[in-house]
Nucleic acid binder design. Structure first.
Lengths: 300, 300
DNA sequence: TAACTGTGTTTGATTTTTCCGAACAATTAT
DNA sequence: ATAATTGTTCGGAAAAATCAAACACAGTTA
């Protein structure tokens, strides 16, 4: 590794070129003339070149000295630009690139509600979205492929910090002709006697729904497990069974579905929506800001 | 005056980004991991920004860290460019090592005349000499084995720049008892009727002499082709034929040779002596200085 | 002429910074 | 469990940067 001139030396050189005077250059740099003198001398030695001719009465930059001074000026400006970028980034939270993972049972229903406002609040944020299941998102989070993830909690994970955003209540969903339809609410006992349809394995909603029913996790023995919420709803409308629907998704899924019955649970049950990021990241403040910005008004 | 990051810190950052490993980055920079660690930490503090997430098992650059690393890389390159410029300039007064190729029909006759003065003018120049024929010298020049070459021109070559030094006039050389001896000059017609002796193939002097006689290049059909100028002269003295001798060499070759007759050509003919170097080299100024320094006073 | 003034440089001491080595903490591999 | 790897912390030593003061030199002034 080669021995480079120091930025300080280059700054001294610039001051010397500007003032044409060691004393003035020194005071401009808040050092004594002796410091500046020896600094310039050392710079000349490391470069192997005379930068300024000086007799006791005047300082005259060499042609080469002038050339090098100009390059030094550009160099210092670039260094200051780095400082500027860092400062701007630290005082402008949520700016620059960020990759956000989202699970399929949140993304399509939450993001349309909050992204427009997010874009307005943080115009310098370039958000890239990745949709995948919780397990994969956590893997990619730890690999650094994504910076944060919108997940449903609780979920077992190490080395990950989370910020709670809001509770997403479950609603009972059934065909309008189902025996439990037209009730104001549905109890767990009533639910237990129904054919409960679930999402396929890998979707955390499956576990969370079972947990809401106070049922133990079960292997995918169902003959019919939906691979997406819209599919699941179609199965319910076809009266193949009932299901639990997160309120977050219920609105858009139920719109236009004539034969779908929805009602709350008694007692209420919910999953928690939150933002997750690597514990090692020191951008906790930023992620809390992001979590707040991704929380829809109606539930906050 | 703002507190800038040091170039060393930026180099450490680059190494960290390249290796993704504090230990490897440290050894790449010839420092201990502790130094690198605290250096990066300090850099992060002066910038007020986290540059790399590090968990005891892996290092992961922040988006901002990557951005800053790239800018740092450009910065370091600019700093190195300054070094380069200075080094190139400090070489201007021909200092340091330089390897010079010379052809056999120039070296022994020109160099003794000019090297003493060269040594005085450029005491810091360490000149290494390589004697070989033009074709080989050009090959070695392009390979970078030599920095410049003293050649006789014209010569067909690509990617090579040349500086003209002086004209080297041909003299007619014959045995003192030759029918053309005692003339004030010799014409081309007279020359054409003589037995012209030449150097062996590969010596450019062979081609240049033929060209001076306005004769086409000829394959080496001669029964007797000399492999050096002293040998050639001996053949002339032995009255085996006549030849054309460059003035540069004539003096030292003729001294002490009783039976040798020399006279100019009518019209005069000459070869050009010049210095050649790689076109890609940016040391044009230096080579022109060298060419001037290698030109003897009597012909300049 | 001789002292004076302004200037860059040298010098020696002092302060500051840098750097290493060892111990440490945390994690993974065996 | 034990060992190996890796980044970090800490204290002291080495290196450097810096200062203040003395110095050297050239014009200028008295």
């Amino acid at each position: 590794m080669l021995h480079l001139p120091s930025l300080k030396q280059l700054q001294y050189l610039m001051a010397l070129e500007e003032t044409g005077h060691f004393g003035k250059a020194a005071s401009q740099c808040n050092v004594t003339p002796s410091t500046l003198s020896s600094s310039i001398k050392e710079l000349e030695e490391t470069l192997g070149v005379q930068l300024a001719e000086r007799n006791n009465r005047s300082v005259m930059m060499t042609a080469l000295g002038l050339e090098i001074t100009n390059r030094a000026r550009a160099l210092i400006q670039d260094a200051e630009a780095i400082m500027e970028i860092a400062k701007a980034a630290s005082r402008t939270p949520l700016s620059g690139k960020m990759t956000l993972g989202v699970i399929p049972t949140i993304g399509p229903y939450l993001l349309p509600k909050v992204l427009p406002a997010l874009k307005t609040t943080y115009p310098d944020l370039q958000l890239y979205l990745i949709e995948d299941q919780t397990e994969q998102l956590i893997t990619r989070l730890k690999r650094g492929e994504i910076d944060a993830a919108l997940l449903a909690l609780p979920y077992e994970m190490e080395g990950v910090s989370t910020a709670f955003m809001f509770n997403d209540y479950f609603q009972f969903a059934a065909n309008a002709n189902h025996s439990l339809a037209r009730q104001k609410s549905v109890t767990l006992e009533e639910l237990a006697e129904s054919d409960l349809l679930l999402l396929a394995e890998g979707h955390c909603l499956r576990e969370h729904a079972l947990e809401a029913c106070q049922l133990p996790p079960r292997a995918q023995a169902d003959n019919f497990a939906a691979t997406s919420l819209p599919t699941l709803i179609q199965m319910v409308i076809a009266n193949m069974g009932v299901t639990l629907l997160p309120t977050l998704a219920a609105g858009s899924l139920a719109s236009g579905a004539e034969n779908l019955f929805l009602c709350p649970l008694d007692p209420p049950a919910y999953r928690e929506i939150g933002l997750a990021w690597r514990q090692a990241s020191h951008r906790t403040d930023e992620f809390h800001l992001l979590a707040a910005a991704l929380t829809p008004n109606e539930v906050s």
